[in-house]
Nucleic acid binder design. Structure first.
Length: 402
DNA sequence: AATCCACAGGAAGTGCTGGGCG
DNA sequence: CGCCCAGCACTTCCTGTGGATT
């Protein structure tokens, strides 16, 4: 009892945190340093909505953690406050809703209605959305975050209809804000969608190390106790994140995790060592998270690549991986999938960043992918072990491969 | 210059799940 | 209830291809 009490007391009187929330990734602060220009630009674009005009569609481009989402949410929040009910908005993350159907379902939900999450035809859902929206008599601003995920997976069908919806609306208007970190994806877009979505374009440059330091300082001031930070901590977080394309989300996460590490150790201050630990943990968790959600055969192909690299050469071709994979399947008593599918899985793993797969031609010796691991072996192994089915036999299979 | 390997990767389809609708 | 719909993991069948070797 008294132990528990002690734990709770400690949580109440943290030596590190004042307000942990301020470091969480989806927290939108009251001020966004070094993004004034973008805030003004976006504000100018959206302002006409206050007078009842439809704002231009906007296309926002910038790498991860450059403040695209934060700025958009921030400007939208201010706008909605000012609009006194004339303007409504919806925020959709297309990584979660990566099908045409789900985007529309989410839009309807944000209008306060609901729709079955499967079963209807997309056309039906679209027409319902149109009717609901028109009956609202509002200007609606729709944010499609990570829009490239939607387009790559489901095409630009919804986008096309959404950009043309205004001609079917009598009482309402709709504007789109598309956010992406992949500029190349516009190649997949129907030119009509592309020009419509790109009525206005905003670019978010990566934060510099100095800017990241600034941001971290401002946040840390309110989130953490004054003397809880060793002097090198913030510069280190900023430096690591600056190397990762100026990713502010990573910088904040590093600081948060480092502080948590320190707290768990019962330390009085966060040191650079904690940041290093945090860095390793973040990387590991990233890897484990993606592996957990993968279907069995994707895991098995990843295992095959792991085994090939651990016990053979550090660079393999599709055919060789396929053989190892078939071996693994046999040992597990599972039917293997076709090489066509394995080739696709390898591309998927490459996109997830777990491996590097590059198409190369070896002349007479064919054309294939050169494959090697991109994530740390221990993280991958741990990720694979998180699968109950694999956990039991993994050690066994690895033994056999030696 | 022609050949030919070892695949890449597109197209279309299947079987299954999980949910409509009337 | 029967039928329809979207999504997913996967198959079948296929055409395409960079460049070392012949």
């Amino acid at each position: 009892m008294s132990i528990l009490n002690e734990i709770f007391e400690k949580a109440l009187h943290s030596r590190i945190f004042i307000n942990r929330e301020l470091l969480l990734p989806d927290y939108v602060p009251d001020e966004l340093p070094h993004r004034d220009k973008q805030i003004v630009q976006l504000g100018k674009i959206l302002a006409p909505s206050l007078a009842g005009y439809r704002p231009s569609n906007v296309f926002i481009y910038g790498l991860t953690g450059t403040g695209k989402t934060a700025v958009t949410k921030y400007v939208l929040r201010k706008l909605i406050e000012k609009a006194k009910g004339k303007v409504i908005s919806a925020y959709i993350n297309c990584r979660n809703s990566d099908t045409n159907y789900r985007v529309l379902a989410d839009l309807i939900f944000s209008l306060g209605k609901s729709v079955p999450f499967t079963g209807l035809s997309t056309a039906e859902v679209f027409s319902r959305f149109k009717n609901y929206l028109d009956s609202k008599r509002k200007i609606m601003i729709v944010v499609l975050d990570e829009i490239d995920y939607l387009v790559k997976k489901s095409g630009d069908g919804v986008l096309y209809h959404l950009t043309r919806i205004n001609s079917c609306l009598k009482h309402s208007k709709l504007s789109l804000i598309g956010i992406t970190n992949d500029l190349k994806f516009t190649e997949y877009l129907d030119p009509r969608v592309k020009s419509s979505l790109g009525e206005e374009e905003l670019v978010f440059p990566p934060y510099t190390g100095k800017e990241l330091e600034d941001i971290l300082r401002i946040r840390a001031e309110k989130a953490l106790r004054k003397d809880a930070l060793a002097p090198g901590v913030i510069p280190l977080c900023a430096a690591i994140a600056a190397k990762q394309n100026g990713d502010c989300r990573l910088a904040l996460d590093l600081l948060l995790k480092a502080a948590e590490m320190a707290e768990r150790e019962d330390a009085n201050i966060v040191t650079e060592r904690h940041v290093r630990l945090a860095q390793r943990e973040i990387e590991k968790n990233l890897v484990i998270d993606v592996i957990i959600s993968m279907p069995l055969h994707v895991k098995l192909v990843l295992l095959a690549i792991y085994l090939a690299e651990a016990f053979n050469t550090p660079e393999q071709t599709t055919g060789e991986i396929f053989n190892v994979y078939k071996d693994v399947c046999r040992k597990m008593g599972v039917d293997p999938v076709t090489q066509r599918r394995v080739s696709e899985i390898i591309s998927e793993l490459d996109m997830l960043g777990l491996i590097n797969a590059k198409v190369v031609s070896m002349g007479r010796y064919g054309r294939t992918k050169k494959i090697k691991l991109a994530a740390s072996k221990t993280s991958i192994l741990e990720g694979l072990k998180s699968d109950r089915e694999l956990y039991d036999i993994l050690e066994h299979i690895i033994e056999e491969f030696k």
